[in-house]
């Protein structure tokens, strides 16, 4: 295992000892996780491990009951998500981060709350995804799953993030579409954006990730380079049986 090297600069995102849950039920029991500047970290693990809750804490939607969220070394625990967005933290949540009853253009108009100009947002989105340009007046909810996810990704691109959170991009999408989406993730990563990505389809993301962390029962159990981690994965999912 190669631990994440954080000696050079403070990581862009750091969770330390984060505990959180819903009501009286605690889901995260002290999560420690770091995303070094300019790298892609994949957070993997079975259902119910607490991946989405971890992301919820990181993006400000869920306030932790204990522990800290640091961004570039500054404590942002409890800062509202809309404030984080304006500081370059963009989250694409699980299950299509779009408004189904708004048109494509209106969805992009919402992005401007983060500070960008509509013209720039539209230009970026339609350039990268020409298909969205063709459908700018269509209700987002009537597009195919892949197109919807592209629209969500367009928000990630157009708001020029410093830190990008992606939750289960691949859910319910055909493998080809997933591959295309992760191609874009790789491009975004090359432009220097730090990315935390949650995936169930581990192999899909391991090709893009610099580091991978495995989460089980509300704790990050191991962190390492993708190559080291792949073997551990089939154990985590299928219980030690290798194909």
């Amino acid at each position: 295992m190669t631990p994440i090297d954080t000696s050079a600069a403070p990581p862009l995102l750091e969770l330390s000892g984060v505990r959180a849950g819903y009501g009286s039920i605690e889901v995260l029991h002290g999560v420690n996780l770091a995303v070094p500047a300019g790298s892609v970290v994949a957070l993997l693990g079975p259902n119910g491990a607490g991946k989405t809750t971890t992301l919820g804490v990181a993006c400000g939607l869920i306030e932790p009951t204990a522990g800290k969220v640091l961004m570039a070394g500054r404590d942002v625990t409890g800062v509202a998500p809309e404030e984080l967005v304006r500081r370059g933290v963009v989250t694409i949540p699980e299950g299509r981060g779009i408004f189904p009853n708004l048109t494509v253009r209106e969805n992009l108009q919402m992005v401007t709350y983060g500070g960008a100009r509509l013209a720039d947002v539209e230009a970026t989105a339609y350039e990268r995804f020409p298909r969205l340009g063709e459908r700018r007046k269509q209700l987002a909810g009537t597009m195919s799953g892949g197109e919807q996810q592209m629209l969500a990704m367009a928000r990630g691109l157009a708001s020029n993030p410093a830190l990008l959170f992606l939750d289960e991009l691949s859910m319910g999408l055909a493998p080809l579409v997933v591959e295309e989406l992760y191609g874009i993730v790789a491009q975004i990563a090359r432009s220097g954006v730090s990315i935390l990505v949650i995936e169930q389809f581990a192999r899909t993301v391991l090709g893009v990730a610099d580091y991978a962390a495995i989460m089980l029962n509300g704790l990050v159990r191991s962190v390492g380079r993708p190559a080291d981690i792949e073997d551990e994965l089939s154990a985590a999912y299928l219980g030690g049986q290798k194909p």
Binding site: E179, Y182, Q200, R203, S234
Partner: peptide
């Protein structure tokens, strides 16, 4: 357990 389709469904059919 021996079924390759099942493994792909769980781990994705991406890189391998």
């Amino acid at each position: 357990q021996q079924n390759q389709t099942v493994l792909d469904a769980y781990l994705g059919s991406g890189s391998r």
